[in-house]
Amino acid sequence: MRRNIGSGSPWEASVGYSRAVRVGNVVHVAGTTATVGGEVLGMDDAYEQTRVVLGIIRDALEEAGATLDNVVRTRIFVTDISRWEEVGRAHGEVFGAIRPAATMVQVAALIDPQHLVEIEAEAIIS
């Protein structure tokens, strides 16, 4: 059984994606940025953007019946790898005890030049 979870973003319908998808006991959360209500939060602050992103991911997981404790994998895309410590600190505050498999890579750009970080997550509900 498949369940699509939307965030209300206007791009979901036009691009054709869901904030999260639950199939059985697995939840996949799409690449998530610090955009709330059309506004990028945490301007030029990689730590704050990461905190916002992880909050959005937490909300999507909860709507899908999962928690942050169920996260087994995160993928972190940053536009400036020299800021990895800011991003890593926020990620560690949330996942320090959970310790999912994680990847952080630098990308040439994200969809909005104001975005410094985008994160995907996968969770398994046991």
Rank of each mutant, 00 (worst) to 15 (best):
S82K: 10
G88S: 11
V117W: 09
G24W: 10
R19N: 06
E39W: 05
I57L: 01
R19S: 13
H28C: 13
I5F: 09
A64C: 10
R83S: 03
Q114R: 15
V105Y: 05
A90P: 01
G42S: 07
L110T: 06
F95T: 00
E93V: 05
V36N: 05
V71K: 00
E48G: 01
I76M: 05
A102E: 06
A60Y: 09
V23G: 08
H28T: 14
G88I: 08
E122S: 13
S82N: 08
W11T: 14
D59Q: 08
A123N: 06
I5A: 08
N4G: 11
V78R: 04
V29H: 04
V23W: 11
D59L: 07
L68I: 14
Q106H: 10
G31W: 09
I111L: 13
G88F: 09
L110D: 10
S9G: 14
T35F: 02
N25G: 13
V71Y: 00
G16W: 13
G31S: 15
G38Q: 13
S18C: 15
L41F: 05
A34N: 03
V71S: 00
S18V: 08
I125L: 12
G42I: 07
E86K: 02
A108S: 14
M43E: 13
N25I: 11
H91C: 05
V105C: 06
T35M: 10
V117K: 08
V71L: 02
I81P: 00
E120L: 12
S126P: 13
P113E: 14
V26L: 13
V78E: 04
S7M: 04
S82P: 05
T74E: 06
V23L: 14
R58K: 15
E63N: 12
S9V: 09
R75Q: 12
V72E: 01
D59V: 09
S7D: 03
G88R: 06
G24I: 11
W84K: 10
M43I: 08
N70D: 15
H91E: 07
Q106G: 14
G6M: 06
A109D: 12
I57Q: 01
I76K: 00
A123P: 03
V26H: 08
G16I: 15
P10N: 04
A97T: 06
V26M: 09
T33I: 11
A101H: 07
Q114E: 14
A46W: 09
S82D: 10
E39N: 09
V23Y: 13
E86I: 02
L68P: 01
T103S: 14
V21R: 06
V15T: 10
G42D: 08
L110P: 04
W84V: 12
R83V: 03
R3Q: 15
L68H: 05
E122G: 08
I124W: 09
G6F: 11
L61V: 10
E12C: 11
I57A: 02
G16F: 14
V53D: 00
V117Y: 09
D59K: 09
I98C: 02
E122D: 11
R19T: 12
R51Q: 09
